[in-house]
């Protein structure tokens, strides 16, 4: 019958990030997936491309007072404030548990309150073989004197990047804040300082006020706004950063469907992170991955690698 095997082949959903192959581009974003094991009770998380584990700092942190969560139209605001057990506890308890449920390279998300703290945390985690990439969070809007203050100033961003760069041979991906005037400036500074990739966007600074109490809903007053409502902003910034740097871009911001994944990849993302969607539907990433081939067929896309940045030029 002369079946054309080439055309019958299922769409290629694999991706590549800083030299590491991913079965698919879908990566649950840090802070929405813990260290993986809560979700592994629901489905085999090895179907994921990878995941970015809970933002880890040198010292243990409780984070901000509650309420930490507010709802908005098509989104949410969080002010968790980098709650985590600290890098030593992560090494001792969390990573061993993670290893039991996830067998692929994982993304280690790290944060700090000084350049030295970032470097220290990276160095402590570096020997863990399962860590494929470091994702350096210089964009947390919920902590004072750290986090976002590094991500809103090109020279501070560069200092953190080069300090982390010096202590690991693994790919360093810097996670950027959208709360800046020109994100391309920060991205270029990170690239020049030795970053292997850029991930964006972290949450947008936002707030809500309770009409009954006449006070902010969130105890910390403001928090990070995420969810489908921020997608156009995130997509625009991914598009801009793809144009500004040569290193790979990981796109995120409101992704909840395979269609959203394709849109971000067309804007220039080599892989994507899914955040808030995991909190609303714990099966969100699984559903996105499973529907990806069908949606690619619908738009006549044979391989994801062919669409990265295709919206440009």
């Amino acid at each position: 019958m002369g079946r054309d095997l080439k055309n019958d082949r299922a769409p290629d959903i694999s991706a590549e990030l800083c030299g590491i192959r991913l079965d698919n581009p879908v990566i649950p974003a840090s802070g929405t997936f813990g260290f993986g094991y809560e979700f592994s009770e629901l489905y085999d998380i090895n179907i994921l491309g990878s995941f970015s584990f809970k933002g880890t700092t040198k010292e243990k942190r409780f984070g901000n007072p509650t309420p930490r969560i507010a709802e908005c139209a098509e989104g949410m605001i969080n002010a968790v404030g980098l709650q985590n057990p600290g890098v030593e506890d992560v090494l001792l308890h969390e990573i061993p548990k993670l290893k039991e449920v996830f067998k692929k390279p994982v993304m280690a998300n790290i944060s700090g309150f000084s350049v030295d703290e970032y470097a220290y945390t990276c160095q402590r985690l570096d020997a863990e073989e399962q860590i494929g990439w470091f994702e350096v969070n210089i964009s947390c809007p919920n902590v004072h004197g750290g986090g976002m203050s590094f991500g809103t100033d090109p020279s501070a961003a560069a200092k953190v990047t080069s300090a982390v760069r010096k202590v690991t041979g693994k790919p360093v991906i810097v996670k950027l804040s959208p709360n800046v005037t020109d994100i391309t400036e920060i991205a270029k500074a990170c690239e020049a300082a030795g970053a292997d990739g850029i991930s964006l966007v972290n949450t947008l600074l936002g707030m809500r006020i309770d009409l009954k109490t006449k006070k902010p809903v969130i105890a910390n007053r403001m928090g990070g706004f995420s969810g489908p409502a921020i997608k156009p902003v995130a997509l625009r910034m991914v598009y801009q950063v793809y144009d500004a740097v040569k290193i790979p871009v990981v796109g995120m911001g409101g992704i909840r469907s395979a269609e959203d994944v394709l849109e971000f990849m067309m804007a220039g993302a080599s892989a994507v992170e899914v955040g808030a969607a995991n909190l609303v539907d714990p099966y969100a990433c699984k559903k996105i991955i499973e529907s990806l081939p069908g949606v690619m067929e619908k738009y006549n896309i044979k391989s994801l690698s062919e669409i990265v940045g295709i919206a440009h030029g």
Partner: peptide, 27 residues
């Protein structure tokens, strides 16, 4: 009772301090 993000232990939105360390109200 606490305002929750996910309800199943993923987001740390409803954490509280206890004698035995941090606990998530939801999980």
């Amino acid at each position: 009772e606490e305002r929750m993000g996910c309800g199943f232990g993923a987001c740390m939105g409803c954490s509280c301090k206890t004698v035995g360390g941090y606990k998530r109200i939801c999980k």
